[in-house]
Structures are given as structure tokens and as C-alpha cells.
Write a protein that binds this DNA or RNA. Structure first.
Lengths: 225, 225
DNA sequence: CATGATAATGTCAGCGTCTGACAAACGTCA
DNA sequence: TGACGTTTGTCAGACGCTGACATTATCATG
């Protein structure tokens, strides 16, 4: 393979003719690539919606997107990853939200912000989120992926952010992980309700209300004073 | 498209239906059956230990247990279920522990009891628990199963028990689920440490210490009084 | 003890996910 | 244009897992 060899030492510096404009990932190649990826995402969503998750084969999806099955698996590691293929954006938002909050903000407020960020994304991608939730409620492999991959990723973001706020190492101090665990449960609870209401109702309020219960934890454990 | 959908990417079956645990029988038929099952369990553990999880095929395990591959899948739904095939006992212990505690016991004490029960089981099955933990740390499919199936089952038990104590419906009141989520995180934290120490050291103390941090939650969220 | 019912296992064929290897098509850049 | 790197297609195959059916083993009864 190309041994990243330095250019011929003799050759002229070759003053770049054009002043290297933005040239973001807008090359035709990458555009085509993300189009393929998008076609797969849409084809998958459409087929999952009409036929169900297990009932749709990866060959079907590839066919509907007019690419080979092999190409599908070059874009997505698993069939489940294809269903959740639009989640990187969410995780980015989450990370940015967490990073943007003031360091001295109370943890509870931070967690509320996390919830708002999630809720916001859910509202903006209602159809897809509802599809994902419905499939997760129906198909075991989907709920497993949701829990073990998607949610575990969110949880990691929260752990890191909380550990930061507390100024501790999450490997030494269990509190960030515990707080994140409680938060994830609040998220699951609220999301389940949102789902049951088919995406109607104020997701944010529901989720914040549920989170508020986290603050009651200590009180619960030491009842009747 | 699909407005008619349901839920979001999170969706778990929701905390309610707890699976029924098996029971004993003494006929020759069932003795043979459980012997076969046990042979598979042991063969699997041995091969996983020496060769790794992905590196061991279900055909290998069936061969080592001297049964057909088809029989393996009659005893275990998946390869992962085979690795965790000794978990029903643990779940039974957990449920009994929870049921045995006085109803007016403080929640924190109840959770400590859960942890002790788990820790006890881990000590008594050290080799197998360590194997499971090690494989979960290495193989994605194993950690996914652990999270989405094994731990989700424990969590459900806790949710039901806590909801009972609080006299609430876990579908209406988010607190049981949140408390259970925090507890599960404490368990993961403690277990990770136990695993890192190769099963040495006082698992119980570690785990209880971690759980104690749950009680600090409220304090953390409302800092500077 | 013979016999029929029932449960566990074996055998076989096949589907579906996912992967490696290699070749062809395409975009990029000099 | 031509060399190069990237994306895709094609092919073959491993592996998990399942349905269908045959076979064997156990159990309950007369």
C-alpha cells in the first residue's frame, strides 16, 4: 500500500494553484457515500415500519436501497445498528449540552438539561424515535441493542460529565455512575410514557418530573425520621 | 410514514412481568434432562475459558457434551443464555431475599440486603462469575446479554420489591424504577472492582459502600445548602 | 410385561446475519 | 490522461438458530 512516502524531494514546491478552499467533506465521493448510507437508513425504516424487524431481511433492505448486501454491512455493523443509525447526532448533542453547562451548576439541573436535550431530539425526530421504541418493545434483539449500546452510550456521557462536576475519577468514586444509573431509569420511565402516548403530551415535563424523584431518594431510604 | 408508531429508542418491556423460575423433579427422565443441561453448561464454560466466546462454536460445545447441536438449542435459547445458564438460581435467591425482608424495613437496608445476596452468590460461584465477567468485558454480544437480559431481570425484581414497600404502582410512580436503576449501577460498579481484583477482597463491603453513595444523591444535587 | 402415550434427542435441510477475499467501478488529483 | 485510493459488487463461506420429521427413551396402565 502507499507508504505515505514524502514527495519527491527534487520536485518543485508546486505552489498550490488554488488556495485550498473549504473543501469540506463535500467531495462527490463522500456525498455519494452518505447518500448510500441515507438510502439504507430510509429503506430500513420503511421496511421495518411495514413488515417488522425480524420480518425484514438485510437483503431486502439492500435491495430497496439499490446496493449490495455487502455494502449494507460496510455502512452498518449490524441490522440493529442500521435501525439506530441516526443516533450519533443525538449523542453529539448530548455531549455538547453537557459540555456547555457551567461547571458549578447543581447536578440536578445538569441532569434536567440532559433530559431536555433528549426530549428535544425526540420531538424533532418523532417518527423515527417512535418506530425505534415500538420495535424495541416488540423485538428482543432490538431492546437489547437499545439498552446495551444506545443507552449505555448516553450513560457514559452522563458519567463523565458528572464525574467532571464532582472532580472525581469515575473509576474510583461510584457516585457518578450511580447518579447516571438513576438518570437513565428516569429517562426510560419518561420515554415509556411518551411512547405510550404516541409521542403526544409534554415529554419534557414528564421527564423532568420523573427526574425530580431522584432527589427524593435519600428521603425514601430514611423514612419516618 | 408513520405517525402511528409508538415509542422511543429506549423502550424496555417495562417493569412488571417477572419470569417464572423452574422447579425440581426427580423422575429419571428429568434427571437425564438436567444432566444433559449440566453437561452443556460445563462444556461451554470449559471451552469458553480456554478458547474464548466467539472462538467457540455451538457445535463444539454440543460435541464436547456429547449431544447434538439441536439439543443444545432445545436447552438454551442462545449461546449467551448458555453462558449465563446458571442464573435462574441467583434470581430465585434474589426474589426470596426480597420477599423475606420485613415490609417496613428502610429501603436502603433492603437494597443492602439485595447486594449481600448477590455478593454471597458471587462468592459461592466465583469461578463462573469471574468467567462471565471476563467474557462480558471482552465480547460485545456477551456484555449486551448481561445488561439487557441478566441485569434487566434483577432490576425488575428490585423494582417490584421497592414498589411493594412504597405501596405504589411502578408504572405510575417512577421512584421504584429510579431507585432500582441507581442500585444496578452500584452493583455494576462493585462487580467491576470485584472482577478487577479477581474475586478477592470483600465484595460485600465494596458493594455496600457503593450503595451508600445512593443515599448521598440528594445532597449532591442540592449542594451548598 | 406388553403397549400406547409422552417427552427428549437425533438428523437433515435451510434461512439469515455477518465476514473475508478479490475484482471492478468510480472519484481524485497531479 | 493516467496513476492512485476508495467505494462497491460478487462470491463463497462460517456460524447461530429453527422447522420438520424420525428415533429412542421413559412413563403410566391394563
Amino acid at each position: 500500500m502507499a507508504e505515505s512516502a514524502t514527495p519527491d524531494p527534487i520536485a518543485d514546491p508546486a505552489p498550490d494553484p488554488r488556495p485550498r478552499l473549504p473543501q469540506l467533506d463535500v467531495s462527490r465521493r463522500s456525498r455519494k457515500k452518505s447518500k448510500t448510507r441515507n438510502d439504507l437508513l430510509e429503506a430500513g425504516a420503511r421496511l421495518f415500519e411495514t413488515d417488522g424487524f425480524d420480518e425484514t431481511t438485510t437483503a431486502d433492505i439492500a435491495e430497496a436501497a439499490d446496493v449490495s448486501q455487502r455494502t449494507l454491512f460496510r455502512h452498518f455493523e449490524t441490522k440493529e445498528a442500521l435501525l439506530y443509525g441516526d443516533m450519533e447526532e443525538l449523542q453529539l448533542e448530548l455531549r455538547e449540552t453537557l459540555a456547555a453547562r457551567p461547571a458549578d451548576e447543581p447536578i440536578l439541573d445538569l441532569l434536567q438539561e440532559v433530559m431536555r436535550s433528549l426530549a428535544d431530539n425526540f420531538e424533532r425526530n418523532r417518527a423515527r424515535r417512535l418506530l425505534q421504541a415500538r420495535l424495541a418493545a416488540t423485538y428482543h434483539s432490538v431492546s437489547a441493542y437499545s439498552r446495551a449500546v444506545v443507552q449505555a452510550n448516553w450513560e457514559r456521557e452522563i458519567i463523565v460529565a458528572v464525574a467532571d462536576r464532582l472532580g472525581v475519577d469515575p473509576l474510583d468514586d461510584p457516585r457518578p455512575e450511580i447518579i447516571a444509573g438513576a438518570t437513565m431509569s428516569a429517562i426510560r420511565f419518561a420515554t415509556r410514557r411518551w411512547t405510550a402516548g404516541r409521542g403526544q403530551g409534554d415529554y419534557v415535563d414528564l421527564i423532568v418530573e420523573a427526574l425530580g424523584a431522584v432527589g427524593d431518594l435519600a428521603g425514601l431510604e430514611r423514612p419516618a425520621a
